[in-house]
Amino acid sequence: MSFISNLLNGISLGSIYALIALGYTMVYGIAKMLNFAHGDIIMVGGYAAFITMAANWCPLWLSMVITVAVCTVLGVVIEKVAYRPLRSSPPLAVLITAIGVSYLLQNIALLTQTANPKTFTSIAAGAPPFLQVFSGKGAVFFKANPYQDEGLKPVLTVSMETFLAIVVSVIIMIALTLFINKTKAGRAMMACSEDRGAAQLMGINVNATISLTFAIGSALAAVAAVLMCSAYPQISPYTGSMPGIKAFVAAVFGGIGSIPGAMIGGVLLGVIEILSKFYISSQLSDAIVFMVLIVMLIVRPTGIMGKKISEKV
């Protein structure tokens, strides 16, 4: 039972990584840059949710809408102000700018929110667990422990947060896949990621398409922020950096630029992290995660779903 519980926790954490990795991979595929400020957008989203949820006037749904809106606008503005002027500069200049933006966001958060971590109230606070399994009694969904009086404890508990993270991520991934494959804007994104010049010759506005990509990536980061802060209820100015880096690892693991790759990479990484935390060593789990990346880069540098790099003759 503990294996199943760990597996589910891993898939749940992995779904959150996948949401973040999608932002990395889409931006990489279309704008051909690594947005290292992506993790800090999660942090901003976390604070936006934290502040609005603490306010009396703000119902939970409005708080979620505001969080997504704040991150979306932030992502688009960052692209416009910091990255667009460097569109034809060498990739290194853009990379350094992205790191600069990352530090800028962290330091603004330090100034305005202080370095003290704050306790985040889960969006599912007060809700019963999604699933409890009792030996000899079977499973109970969406209910508080009905055998409390008999002193019976569940052998397997799946929290509401775990459940929400998986469900929300799956819905978003399906919606995103449909959007990319079925809509005109989605196909424009595919075209831009393959050949920006040829896309322009089709009449596609490349700048608008890149803005849209940043908007979607940042909105996903906002959702990831709420899910993550609910599952690991703490927020500080550095909250976003570790998940950001891990999601980047997930994106590379799955094959950077590939959308299904980011999903698979994210989930796998989450599972690897949680399982190694439980069965190997909780201190070494991060090291194991990064080691997996190194092994992957040696064995299959393009990632699980990576495109073969073909050379033009």
């Binding site: 196909r187 595919m190 075209a191 393959e194 050949d195 040829a198 896309a199 089709m202 009449g203 596609i204």
Partner: peptide, 15 residues
């Protein structure tokens, strides 16, 4: 657009 189908390429032409 090598990854896209022939039909998708043509519809992009009418973007």
């Amino acid at each position: 657009f090598a990854q896209l189908s022939v039909l998708e390429n043509l519809t992009l032409g009418a973007y």
